[in-house]
Structure formats: C-alpha cells, structure tokens
Nucleic acid binder design. Structure first.
Length: 762
RNA sequence: GCCCGGGUGGCGAAAUUGGUAGACGCAAGGGACUUAAAAUCCCUCGGAGCUAAAACUCCAUGCCGGUUCGAUUCCGGCCCCGGGCACCA
C-alpha cells in the first residue's frame, strides 16, 4: 500500500532543509550570470491575501525556474511599513503604529515561509526602521543641495470638524469619512521634487523598455502627456494686464468666444477681494475633493467677471469667466473657450448662453508659425506631469529632515545628526520639535511633516543589494545586481509607483550611486485578484485569507491552484472551488511516483514518447513567455499520458514532469525526486530539453478546409506540396461531397498544418 | 469625465499569435467498487436539427458592420465590467 500524501509533513521537511542549508542566500559571483527577481513588497496590513499569494507565487516560480537554468538568482523580500492604516489602527484600537506594524510583519513573514517562497531573508528591508529611512533623509538633503527640491503652497483636503488633512480615499462624496463634514480645499506649504526636470528622459526611455507590457508604457506616456502647443496672450480691455492661455489648438483662435480662468488663478483671487459674488463662487468651488476624478465629473459652473479681453487678431471683446472645470495645475490655469471644437467648452457655453462661433479649422503647425510671426503666440511644450508633492501631515512616516529658522529660513538637518527619529508617540509633547538652527544657532523648529510613502517604495529594490551597509545608502554591490531583471506586481501600480521608482533610479544615477538608467528591465503586471468583482482591499473588507486553504491542502496545492486558475496578467475573480482539483492532481502525482517502475534505459520510439515531447516543447515555450497556467495544463496532460503509457516511458516522463513542476510546487517535487530514485536533490538536475529523435516522424496530419470551412483531415508526408495535398484530398471518400460538381480555383497551404481548397460552381 | 485593459460553455480557462473554437480543470449527471458513505476509477457534458445509434448539417467567442479563401485573433462604431486619475498602497 502506498504511503499517503501528507503535504504538511513533506513541506516542513523541505522548508527546514532549505533554511538550514541557507539555500536562497546569495552573494555576488562574477563567474555566474546574475538574475534579480523582485516582487513588489507588501504593506503589512495584517494577513496575506490572495493577491499577495498570487504575486509571490509568480515571483517564486520565475526565481526557481531561473535557478534551474543555472543563474545566480537574488529574490529578496521586505515591508512597506509606513502608511495610513497603521495610524487608523492606532486611533481605533489604541495600539501604537510601530507595535501594530511589527506584529503584522511577524505574522505575515510566517505565512510567507509556510508557502515555501525562496527569499534571501538576510536582505530583508523594513522601511519604518531608522536604518532604512535615514538614507532617505540623507538623499533628500542631497537633492535639496542639488536644487531638485523646493517648497510651495498646494491644496489639500481639509476636514473642518476633525481639523485634519484627509487623503483622497478618506473623502467620500465630498465629505470626510469620519466626521461627515463637507471637505474644504485648503492651501498649505509643501515640499516638491522636480520630477518634471526628468519628464523628457522618463518619456524617451519608455521606447527602450521593451521588456515592459505595451499597456504600461502607453499609460506612462499618457500620464507624462507631452504636448506641443502655444502660449497666447490676451490683453485686458480695461487695464494693461494680460491673461496667458496655453492651447494645443492655436488654429482654433478664431473660434474663441470666452476666456475661462481657474478659481485659483491669480486674477480670480484678486477679483474675489473686491467682489462678494466672485468670492462666494470661489469659496463654493473649494467644497470638493482635490482628486481629479471628483473634479472631472462636476457639473460645470462659472461666474462672469464682467471683464473683457481683446482678441489678438480681430480686436473683438471677449468675456472673461471663472469656471470650475479649469484646473490650476494644468497649463497656465486659464483657457481660451472654443465651443465649436472643444466638448467641455461647448457644454459650458450652452449653460451660460455664450456664442458658438463657426470657423474653418486650419493646419495647427502652420497657424502657430504664423501667430508666432505676428507676435501673438509663443511656442510652448507642455507636460501633463506635475512635480511630486512629498509632504504629508501625518505621524507614521519618515520625518522630513528640515529645520525652519525665523532668520535663516529652511535649513537641512546636518548629516551627522541623521537619522531624525520619529516622535515617541502619535501626540508628541509640544517641545518635541524645538531645536536650534544649524546655521545661526538660535532657537528653531523642526519640520513636523513626514514623507509620502511612495518615496520608500521608490528605492527599496536598490537597498536590497547593499544589506547591513551602515555607512552609505548603497555600495558597490548595487551595480552587480541592478537593474532588476524581472519585476512582478499588480497592474494598479502601472503609473504612480513605477514612474516614481524610475525617477528615483535616475536621481540615484545622477548622484553617482549607481550606473544604470532604468530600474526594471522586465515587468510582469499581474492581474488583480478580485472578490465580488472589485479589488481586494482592507478598506472594502473583501480580502480572502489563504490561511485555511494552506492548513487544509498545503502550500503546494495553493500555489498550484493560483497559478492554474488564470494567466498571470489577467484579473482573477476569487472562488474556493477548483482548489479540490489541484489537490487531486498532486495526490495522483504522488501515487504515480510511488508506483512507476525504475527501469534502466529503454527509450522506445513510440507514440507516447512523441506525445510526451510534444507537450514538453509547449511547456518550455510557455515558461519563456511566462504563461504558467498552461504549464500546469501541460503537466496534467503529461501525467494523464503516463498513466496510460507503457512502463518504459514512465520513469523518463516522471523525471521530466517533476522538473517542470518544481518551480510551481517545489516541496512535493523535491520529495518525489528522491522517492523515484532520481537523485538526492532535484535542484542539482538540469532543466529538461527536447529529444528531437522522439519527435521524428515522416507523415503529418493536415487539416482540410473547403472555402475556409473545416471539413476533415488527411495524412500526408511532411512538407507536402499543393499537388500532393490536392491528390490526397481528392482521394479521400469522406471529402467527396464537398468537391463533386465544383471547380477548383485555388489551393492555399499552411505548411505541415492545413490545406484550404477554394472552390466555386462549375 | 479622461487614460489603460477585459468580455469565449453552468464556472476558471485554451487556441504555438490570421488556419480544427472550447485543450486542461471545476461543477453537474450516469455507472463500477462498498453493508453504507468518503476516497478512487470509468462514461457523458456549448446549443439546435436529424438519427435506433453513429454519421452528418446548421448556429455559436459581448453587440453591429468591414477586410480576408478563412476572423476569438486585424479595422471602425457601440454596450457592459475592471484598474488608474497624483494624499489607499
């Protein structure tokens, strides 16, 4: 009687062995080809969810596959540990954010280990530890010294009842999520990184990122949004002032029927001081979240300023309005309203009965050239991309390492005083921020704000390469491992995280910390694991904890199922059904490996062996294109085939089967490799290759189509030509009725696959 | 609203990228084994028509149209679902 398959026992055995042998610890080895495989690090929210399992299983499959190909593979793991949920937990359950975070990390780390992922834990990064964020503070100061950092006023969501700044996520239908109060946009001073200085390079290099999905490259291209247009000046009728608009359609200048200003435009604000109606309108416009999506769906509203601008060509007077759909962040905060050619302008014009002027559209480039010549316009390249606001009015984040001195202004904290540590608790004593100015020595105050957590996730991948380095942000090891060869993470990060990380890489390069231009050469954007049709998230309370599945079926079954359920890039609606099938397959594999005979060297040239290698060649192809779900189907086909095959192929087949499944279900394959007497350690075996002799055959099946419709098939010699195939088709009794009484016009042959006879009436 | 994806049996999906639509699996139904159940094994399984059964025919990849000998795949238009929209991560 066979020994029954007990996953937990098998998995513990192998996990213990791998840990003891430090199997996944790697060092720089110039003799071997390196491969850096990275999965996006998790936010330690409490438990792993199915999205994590999917992400990390894909990463582990690629890692173990590359190891079997003989490469020196680095696969690290860490924790994106700063963020809003820790503060919410602190408020709701009175747990300090640090305690909550570290407990979550301990729990989730256990879960990752239980799933058998091959990480080099020696390189673990936890972003809320001072050893990590001190280098972020150091780096920020370097950028400040280089002039890549500046401070300016910017809008935030303000909850007037709770008296706090709200994240966009915390604004629901324009109201604060806890207080229910109508939010207000409020202007406060904030730090910005000059990502726009890098806009051209970030855009141009997208063309070189051929290992990235086109989808992501397109999204980033559109996000950067480079557009060639013109600045056009409109003189005010009643004064010497001007309004400058940016337009990509200077050729529509003749169709202008109004000028629309953003409510935050300097002229709008100036008018508000004198005119109560305008003041009230601008105030009213503030009652909306700063999120672009919220503003884009607003009903269009405006107010007439009573002022007029002079049309630069016709000298006609054009009314100036303030409109809620004009964004201050884009262009100059003022647009020329051309209802005839622009949908939004048209909608606005219809609401306020502004004229819609008909005019012939002209060539844009020629018109701009002409307008420039007449001194009416100035060529301007504009980017949709805005500088990155990195200040957050929060406790649980990296403190901004700056000091505000009344006399000297803003001064960086001296390098030797880094790191600037977090306050001891969420409501620090008033004197906590008191300090002295490093320049003049007088009393001064430290910055209370912390950094956007996107900063931590913009360079963690580099820090993994230089673990335990206390004297520098990165060291020489970084250039051995970077860039990352394969990055895997959710499609929801297609723009923000991946663009910021690219930006940071270029900043680190320009500060001579690394030499490469881009951080990630290949990117796999895994589809989201959905529950009830929506993204699994803690705030929606629809996460699924894999804990019970692992307990019931074991890690290999969970890994196998999540890989089998859908191709990596597609969304996956979660359902527990189907896990049973994965478990059943592993039991059948277990039993088969115990039953199959050990035979020395038969290698018969039979049909099963040919099929075995046909399936294998497909599997090897699927590994290369990372379509792992069909690797699993292929493995199932091989097992089905072997169970029906002659004993002579069974051991050869099993050896192949275990090796191609090993990256997906490593524990059971390692165990069965020993059981089947194939060796002590499956990782010492080479990756399977195709035996061409097994595939050798002289004949081939050809699909027969008549007028493009499949009507049967014929067997013919390999590489058969038109004449041979025609003869075979005409000789086939089954195909007679499609041929009789018809005239052959044309024969189309797809080599070794198909023949199509195009026929008509005689 | 704007940008990017997706839509194929009851369900997850496949189709080596323009050439056999539905591989592989789940669920379901029937059978074998069993005192019984579980487990396991075998068979059926998109729809309609025609059959005693097979064979065969037609329809079918969100909807409408186009290109092609041939379209799930390419092009145009629409509908629905998901992701992102700069302070969720």
């Amino acid at each position: 009687m066979d020994k029954p398959y007990q996953p937990e026992q098998v998995e513990t055995t192998w996990q213990t062995r791998w840990e003891k042998e430090k199997r996944f610890r790697v060092t720089e080895d110039i003799q071997k080809k390196k491969f850096y495989c990275l999965s996006m690090l998790p936010y330690p929210s409490g438990h792993l969810h199915m999205g994590h399992v999917r992400n990390y299983t894909i990463g582990d499959v690629i890692t173990r596959y590359q190891r079997l190909l003989g490469k020196n593979v680095l696969q690290p793991m860490g924790w994106d540990a700063f963020g809003l949920p820790a503060e919410n937990a602190a408020i709701q359950h009175k747990i300090p954010p640090a305690k909550w975070t570290h407990e979550n990390i301990a729990y989730m780390k256990d879960q990752l280990k239980r799933l058998g992922f091959g990480y080099d834990w020696d390189r673990e990064v936890t972003t809320c530890n001072p050893e990590y964020y001190r280098w972020e503070q150091w780096f920020f100061i370097k950028l400040f010294e280089k002039g890549l950092v500046y401070k300016k006023n910017a809008l935030v969501n303000w909850d007037p009842v709770d008296k706090t700044v709200l994240a966009n996520e915390q604004v629901i239908d324009g109201k604060g999520w806890r207080s229910g109060a109508l939010v207000e946009q409020r202007e406060i001073p904030q730090w910005f990184l000059k990502i726009t200085d890098y806009a051209d390079e970030l855009l141009a290099e997208l063309d070189n990122l051929t290992g990235w999905p086109d989808q992501v490259r397109t999204m980033q291209k559109n996000w950067i949004g480079k557009s060639e247009g013109a600045l056009i000046k409109f003189k005010l009728d009643a004064s010497k002032e001007n309004i400058t608009v940016f337009t990509t359609r200077a050729d529509t200048l003749n169709g202008v029927s109004f000028i629309a200003l953003s409510p935050q435009h300097a002229l709008s604000l100036k008018l508000a001081t004198k005119n109560k109606d305008i003041h009230n309108f601008i105030d009213h416009c503030k009652n909306v979240s700063t999120a672009e999506a919220a503003q884009a769906v607003l009903e269009k509203k405006g107010i007439n300023t009573g002022l007029y601008a002079v049309h630069p060509l016709t000298q006609a007077l054009i009314p100036i309005w303030i409109a809620n759909y004009v964004l201050m962040d884009y262009g100059t905060g003022a647009v020329m309203g051309v209802p005839f050619s622009d949908e939004r302008d048209k909608e606005f014009a219809e609401i306020y009965n502004l004229p819609i002027k008909d005019f012939p559209e002209a060539d844009i480039q020629k018109t701009i050239a002409l307008l420039v010549k007449k001194h009416v316009a100035e060529r301007k390249t504009h980017y949709r991309l805005r500088d990155w606001g990195v200040s957050r009015q929060r406790y649980w984040g990296t403190p901004v390492p700056m000091i505000n001195c009344k006399k000297c202004g803003t001064v960086p904290v001296p390098e030797k005083e880094l790191p600037v540590l977090l306050p001891p608790n969420i409501n620090p004593p008033a004197d906590f921020y008191e300090t002295t100015c490093p320049t003049c020595g007088k009393k001064a105050e430290r910055e209370k704000d912390t950094f956007d957590t996107f900063i931590e996730s913009s360079w963690y991948y580099a820090r993994y390469t230089s673990p335990h380095q206390d004297h520098a942000m990165l060291d020489g090891r970084a250039n051995y491992w970077l860039p990352v060869d394969q990055y895997i993470g959710g499609i929801e990060h297609a723009v923000l995280h991946l663009l910021y990380a690219r930006f940071f890489h270029k900043l680190m390069r320009d500060l001579k910390l690394i030499t490469s231009d881009e951080p990630f050469t290949h990117l796999l954007t895994q589809g989201m694991v959905l529950k009830n049709g929506a993204k699994m998230s803690k705030s929606q309370g629809n996460t699924v904890d894999p804990k019970h599945l692992i307990q019931q079926y074991g890690a290999d079954t969970v890994r196998l199922f999540i890989i089998f359920a859908a191709p990596p890039e597609l969304g996956l609606e979660w359902s527990d059904a189907g896990v049973e099938g994965a478990s059943r397959f592993l039991k059948r594999l277990w039993n088969a490996a115990h039953d199959f005979p050990v035979i020395a060297k038969p290698l018969p040239a039979d049909k099963s062996r040919q099929q075995l290698y046909e399936i294998l060649s497909r599997i090897l192809f699927d590994y290369e294109r990372k379509q792992f779900n069909t690797v699993v189907s292929g493995a199932m086909k091989i097992l089905n085939l072997l169970l029906e095959s002659d004993k002579t192929v069974q051991q050869e087949g099993l050896s192949i089967l275990l090796r191609i499944l090993f990256p997906i279900t490593p524990h059971i394959c390692a165990e069965l490799w020993q059981v089947a007497n194939l060796g002590d350690d499956i990782e010492k075996a080479s990756w399977p290759v195709i035996d061409e002799t097994a595939l050798h055959s002289t004949t081939q099946q050809f699909i027969v189509q008549i007028n493009g419709k499949m009507r049967g098939s014929v067997i013919a010699v390999k590489n058969a030509n038109e004449a041979v195939l025609q003869k075979a088709v005409y000789a086939d009794p089954h195909l007679q009725k499609f041929i009789d009484g018809k005239k052959l016009h044309k024969i189309i042959v797809v080599p070794n696959k198909l023949v199509n006879l195009v026929m008509g009436e005689k």
